[in-house]
């Protein structure tokens, strides 16, 4: 999530006399590209082996080669169900620079939590910690698995 407009944080919106806004953010993604950086640039200019892309124009990106392993900490039946829900995404999205990300908003200081995936089949925990260190902001890190939202929804909710 990002915006090139005014901050969406609740504190900033209140200072502008507006109601509502983002109180905090729980991040479960694997990468943290900064404003203007594309996901492809963030990963060094080439796709890692678990990402495949269809030809352009109209290129779609997917994790075809490792789909079952994306949810390797979930029960087998859940893994299968989630794998069937896997859908391709516009490759263009990964080739263009991201908007200023919401997680970098200074008004969310001390209100960011990272669910560190200990059993991630895409990026190992060491890589995730490297991403966190390079983000330039402080995170509260909570260790878990990649498919926590389905394996232990109650825990994520807490």
């Amino acid at each position: 999530m990002g915006t090139d407009g005014p901050s969406l944080s609740k504190r900033a919106r209140e200072s502008r006399g507006e109601k509502g806004g983002v109180l905090g953010i729980v991040y479960t993604s694997s990468a943290l590209p900064t404003a203007g950086t594309s996901q492809l640039e963030y990963l060094g200019g080439s796709w890692p082996p678990f990402i495949s892309e269809t030809p352009s124009p109209g290129a779609l990106l997917s994790f075809d080669r490792i789909i079952p392993h994306l949810f390797n900490d979930a029960p087998p039946a859940v893994q299968q169900a989630l794998a069937q829900q896997h859908i391709p995404t516009s490759a263009n999205v990964f080739r263009t620079g991201v908007l200023p990300p919401l997680w970098a908003d200074e008004r969310l200081e001390s209100r960011r939590v990272w669910l560190l995936a200990l059993q991630d089949a895409t990026f190992p925990p060491e890589a995730a910690r490297m991403f966190l260190g390079g983000s330039g902001v402080e995170w509260e890190v909570v260790e878990g698995g990649r498919a926590l939202w389905c394996r232990d929804a109650a825990w994520v909710g807490c």
Binding site: S38, P57, I87, S90
Partner: peptide, 29 residues
Amino acid sequence: VSVFCAAGYEALAVAQASANPTDPDAYTA
């Protein structure tokens, strides 16, 4: 979402327009 709702929170999940699009080139980050 079910956990949040059972706890009395308003919760909803949204879809990304770039996911499974009819025109993949129409979207940027």
